[in-house]
Computed example of a mutant assay.
Amino acid sequence: MSRITAGNLCLGSAPDSWGVWFPADERQVHWTRFLDELAGAGYRWFELGPYGYLPTDPRQLAEEAGARGLQVSGGTTFGALHRPDSWADTVATARRVSELASAAGAHHLVFIPAMYRDEKTGAYTEDPQLTAEQWSSFGARANDLGRILLEEYDVRLVLHPHADSHIQTQPEIERYLNETDSRYANLCLDTGHVAYGGGDNLDLIRRFGERVGYVHIKQMDPDVLAQVAAEELSFGEAVKRGVCVEPPAGVPDPAEIVDALSALAAELFVIVEQDLYPCTAEVPLPIAMRTREYLAAQGVTGTARPRLG
């Protein structure tokens, strides 16, 4: 069902939708082109993406965003909460990104668990399953990190389930939520990655809606998902085969997601994040424009900043 407006949802996009996965890569568009096209496509909010891709000087970032009528919704980082020897680096990186996001007026850090397969080669780098001890460590460190970011930067930690990571399937997502404290660690519901892991987005929204603090909206091609299962493809290979598709194609149905999210009490950023790495420079803009128009027709706009509870 289309809505005139889903008043609690604020639309934005991310460098990922322009084929950006890394701070620097010869196959990615320059950050000025990303910001120019983002504004030209009608978006007003954006996520920072990989730290170092966009300017990391707060003054320069503010000037570049402001000149285009743009505002920052949140920052993004990877980290390995299950590895004790990575804790110091994980905290340091999260602090750096949160400091920049906070300086830009943003209050969310999208935290992506470390992947157990290499993003470019698909090679396994560690066991896909966490031990009971690692799970306990993961939850405790998510709480600790979330507390640090909230108290020092007024930034909320929202963990992003991700393909080829230890928080991918619905049971893993639910275990993460059960292992963590809602005061400090919540969920960035990435609708595409939930579908990739075989989960049910509508069920998660219905049962854990109070833990959804931020949203990445994307869809996956069921035919490519079948190839992933049959051939044990890495996420990087799946993206190359076009697993991420623009709405209204793919699963889950974005209109159903918008309807479910609009019934929540919370006000939320809904960030378009269609994985396109690698792609030619001319590909992202038309997709971004069509996607914004489709979601606007569902009532998702980018005209106001969500209030934090």
Rank of each mutant, 00 (worst) to 15 (best):
F235M: 15
L268F: 11
D57C: 06
A132G: 09
S262W: 00
L81I: 04
T32R: 08
S13N: 15
V283I: 13
V29D: 06
G79W: 01
Q170S: 02
S182I: 10
A94Q: 05
N8L: 00
A14D: 03
E151H: 10
G236R: 00
D200Y: 06
L150D: 15
R68H: 07
L38G: 10
D154E: 14
Q71S: 15
D85K: 04
N178C: 06
Q60N: 10
L61T: 03
V20S: 02
R3N: 09
D85N: 08
W135D: 06
L70F: 02
F78H: 12
L38P: 10
H162D: 06
L261Q: 01
I271V: 13
Y116T: 02
S98D: 00
S262K: 07
Y51Q: 07
D57I: 00
G79T: 01
P15G: 03
L233W: 07
P248C: 01
A88H: 10
E152W: 05
D16S: 10
R147D: 02
T280Q: 08
M289Y: 13
D25I: 05
R83N: 12
Q134V: 02
R59L: 15
A123P: 08
L9I: 10
P50E: 00
Y53M: 04
I148N: 00
P222T: 12
Y176N: 08
E26H: 15
R117E: 02
T76C: 06
E246D: 07
P113N: 05
H107Y: 07
P23R: 03
D164N: 13
R147A: 12
T301H: 13
G40I: 00
L38D: 09
P58M: 13
A185H: 05
P84L: 01
V251E: 08
R290N: 12
D127C: 09
D25K: 05
N186V: 10
P222Y: 09
G199T: 03
G122F: 00
A41M: 04
Y196C: 06
D144G: 14
P248M: 03
S102W: 12
F208T: 06
L159H: 11
R206Q: 14
Q170E: 13
A255M: 09
L189H: 04
A94Y: 03
T131L: 11
D223R: 13
G49W: 00
G146W: 01
G69W: 06
T180S: 12
L261H: 05
Q134F: 09
V300A: 01
L159D: 00
G309W: 04
E293R: 04
S2W: 08
V72M: 08
A94T: 12
V239H: 01
T90H: 03
T301L: 11
V72W: 01
E231L: 13
L149I: 15
M289Q: 15
L145H: 10
G197W: 09
L233V: 04
V72N: 01
V212C: 14
D25A: 06
Y294H: 05
S73V: 07
S86M: 10
F22N: 12
D25F: 02
I205A: 11
A266Q: 15
A65E: 02
V228C: 10
P128G: 15
R117Y: 09
T180G: 14
P58D: 07
E151P: 11
K120L: 15
W21Y: 13
